[in-house]
Write a protein that binds this DNA or RNA. Structure first.
Length: 185
DNA sequence: AAGTCGGGGAC
DNA sequence: GTCCCAGACTT
């Protein structure tokens, strides 16, 4: 559920929202028979609330039809409403404990600044970015690495005005080194 | 491949 | 006032 709330929404905003939401909708079953107007008004402050309401209810129904259990098969997981590559990876990483990249706009930005830009517009089909992300998180501390990169993207490696001077990765970062050499010219 | 959803925080 | 966000879906 949390991953749906996080789609195109700043993590800090969701964090402030999280406890209240789960006290009202603690499980999938509570969403299957939730009053849709009540759910919509609840989600409105987060944005994308019409789509998110529909997605949450559809997803809850789909999961409850499967005895309330999320399928193990990767292909079946991605068929669930509102579940794309990112959420499927999140399930694989956090629920199954198998390394997978939480490759969102933030991680893509960090990787591209550090290693160099992707070739395709769509993250999901950019093989360069995919390979890079999988390689970076394929270790025994995959969860920590993922969260570390995402935190970095939100706090320091922001889209606008990144705080490169405070960044622990600036030494090997293409973006930072490029800016330094530019300044010297 | 491009358009759409969306309120709110950061600037 | 402008920009962008732990994406997924439709066209």
């Amino acid at each position: 559920m949390t991953e749906i709330l996080l789609q195109r929404t700043r993590a800090a905003n969701v964090a402030a929202f999280y406890d209240d939401f789960f006290s009202h909708y603690p499980d999938w079953y509570s969403l299957t028979n939730a009053d849709s107007e009540g759910l919509e008004s609840f989600l409105r402050p987060l944005g994308i609330w019409r789509r998110r309401t529909a997605t949450l209810v559809n997803l809850a129904n789909a999961i409850m039809e499967m005895d309330g259990r999320v399928p193990h098969d990767r292909v079946e997981i991605e068929k669930l409403p509102g579940v794309g590559q990112y959420v499927a990876n999140a399930i694989q990483l956090l629920a199954a404990g198998t390394p997978a990249p939480l490759l969102d706009a933030g991680m893509a930005r960090v990787l591209e600044r550090y290693f160099g830009p992707r070739t395709l517009a769509d993250i999901r089909y950019d093989k360069y970015l995919q390979d890079l992300a999988w390689r970076v998180v394929s270790c025994d501390k995959a969860i920590e690495v993922n969260w570390g990169i995402l935190d970095l993207s939100a706090v320091l490696c922001k889209n606008r005005e990144p705080l490169c001077s405070q960044c622990p990765l600036k030494k090997g970062c293409n973006y930072y080194q490029g800016n330094v050499s530019e300044r010297l010219v």
